[in-house]
Design a protein around this nucleic acid. Structure first.
Length: 262
DNA sequence: ATGTCGATACTTTATCGA
């Protein structure tokens, strides 16, 4: 059995104690972190190495940044999403861990999406999703057992938000965004949480503003996508809401995937 | 209740991104 967690921590430095405590208690074999908001050399490796993790980081100053923590050795395959050499944003990191190919991603937010013509940010998001689909297609051809986890900044279906009407027009919920996400699934990928929890509504993000957490006005935007070989091994996928209620919480919570075997 | 948070810089408050 292997457990893999994904968590947008909203600054690994600001969240160091929260993340360390959660990892010590939950002890996933692999943890995918997003929005670490620090440059690669500045990642606080030691506190996580002390918990038994090997670490790979793709960081940048101030914004974005992703990291993979693994109790087993990991070998980085790519540290940026292929398809645009001019894209300097640290949003994608992929590694081999045993026979698994594990990808940690922080998909662009895309807001504001623009009215009429898409904004530069929204066009970047949609282009990034196209590149992700290309990457997925390439890996599927090679028959890897692949797991993509991270903050997709996509609300897949109305059931995945407290109030669909309130999110209408948002870059996370626009028809073009959802269509692009479906085209990714249509390659033959399995969205793990929805596969395990058929109709249940559950959230992974609650805005800091407006008492969203207290009123449970959340959205589900942190996902695991599994290649067919990975989906064969799917055991469970759960959202751990508990860290959202603790002091100095991230606005996202961990999602934990369990698969058979190593 | 426009009631948040984190990083950054020509910093001690404004701006950006989320």
């Amino acid at each position: 059995m292997t457990t893999i967690a994904t968590w947008n921590v909203n600054s690994v430095k600001a969240r160091l104690e929260n993340v360390r405590t959660w990892l010590a208690d939950s002890a996933p074999d692999i943890a995918l972190l997003q929005e670490i908001k620090c440059e690669t050399p500045a990642f606080p490796a030691e506190p996580f190495e002390d918990l038994g993790y090997n670490i790979a980081v793709a960081g940048q100053k101030g914004y974005n940044g992703v990291a993979i923590l693994s109790k087993r050795p990991l070998e980085v395959t790519v540290d940026a999403l292929p398809g645009d050499p001019d894209d300097a944003q640290a949003r994608y990191l992929e590694a081999d861990i045993g026979t698994l190919r594990i990808a940690c991603l922080y998909l662009p937010n895309g807001n504001p999406p623009g009215n009429g013509t898409a904004s530069e940010k929204y066009r970047y998001k949609l282009a990034w999703m196209d590149r992700l689909r290309e990457r997925a297609a390439d890996l599927l051809v090679e028959d890897h057992t692949v797991i993509w986890g991270g903050d997709f900044n996509v609300i897949p279906e109305p059931v995945d938000c407290h109030d669909p009407a309130a999110w209408e027009g948002d870059a996370l919920f626009r028809p073009e965004t959802r269509r692009s996400f479906r085209s990714l699934l249509n390659l033959g990928l399995t969205e793990a949480f929805r596969a395990v929890n058929r109709n249940r509504n559950a959230y992974t993000f609650w805005d800091y503003q407006g008492g969203a957490w207290q009123m449970d006005k959340g959205i589900r935007i942190d996902h695991f996508l599994l290649s067919p070989q990975a989906a064969d091994r799917l055991q469970d996928c759960r959202i751990d809401r508990e860290p959202r209620g603790l002091p100095k919480a991230s606005d996202h919570v961990p999602v934990v995937l369990t698969i058979d075997g190593e």
